[in-house]
Amino acid sequence: MIQKSPESPAYDEHIGVPLVLDHVSVSFSTPSGPARAVNDVSLTLNQGEILGLVGESGSGKSTLAFTIMGLLPDGAQFDSGSVRVLGSDLYGMNPETLRTFRWKRIAMVFQSAMNALNPVMTVEAHIMDTLQSHNPGIRPEDARRRMNEILDLVKIDPRRARSFPHELSGGMKQRIVLAIAMIFNPPVLLMDEPTTALDVVVQRSILDQVREIQAERQMAILFISHDFSLVRSLAHRVAIMYAGRIVEITGSLERSGPHHPYTEGLMRAIPELGEDDVKIVGIPGNPPDLLHLPEGCPFHPRCPVAFNRCKVEAPPMVQVNDALIACHQYTEPGKEGLA
């Protein structure tokens, strides 16, 4: 039932909303049983918004990105829920419809631009391939014009189109992957750790470009990263993922103000500018094993404020000020949460 989801608007039609996830669960079959990598995730990405998605390695954020693209990796299974892009249910489409829908409506910048390009094909061949896959009859001169436009957009010299991937620097490859993602002006863009492999200067210039393009075209971007401070500087809202669940979605990115204990831990791990006596405190304990998730709230073994209820009952999402938080601190005993 869509209405029950706290994140979804009150109406059934999501035509205008770029991306709506409704109770999405995905699991991997492993020799030791199923591992739920994405667990009952609901969220909405609005027009013109950059939503940050933050989590540790293994928290399920990359799996979530591929799930949204309809590209489940080997061994993964879509258990339940729905993914709606501009109102269309991605998992209700036949493969051919999905093939043509994807990239025109929703595109993705991959984590590893180093490996995202086919080593035996030139940049030009990649771009032509993409254009022709969606528009078989495209005139060569039109295709070339479009190629030059998008290379221009990411500030790559069009003469570079003849290069093979191994002749390009990491930053250039990342720009080209970004250009290919922008080729059809998709209203929704996923970016999965787009700058992780790059040095800080290149990272900065690419992010500036992303900000610029986004502001100009009012795209909706889901920006995935493990780097909390990076996301905080870029996103309008941030969703925090832990053990396959969203534990908090907040627009308030200040330390003060109610947060999930895990979010507080993440924030404490970042030195604040202007603070003299910088004290970085990590989160004790290890990320959970998806095969052996603890009962109740999955964060309770590492949580400094956990109490008895946390060990037996998974907390629902509740509205706290302008944030949604899944933590028993904020649920009143005896009263059901919003979800």
Binding site: V54, E56, S57, G58, H226, D227, F228, S229, L230, L266, A269, I270, G282, I283, G285, N286, P287
Partner: peptide, 9 residues
């Protein structure tokens, strides 16, 4: 600034 608390290999 990375929030990875353990090495992942």
């Amino acid at each position: 600034m990375s929030i990875s608390t353990t090495a992942q290999n």
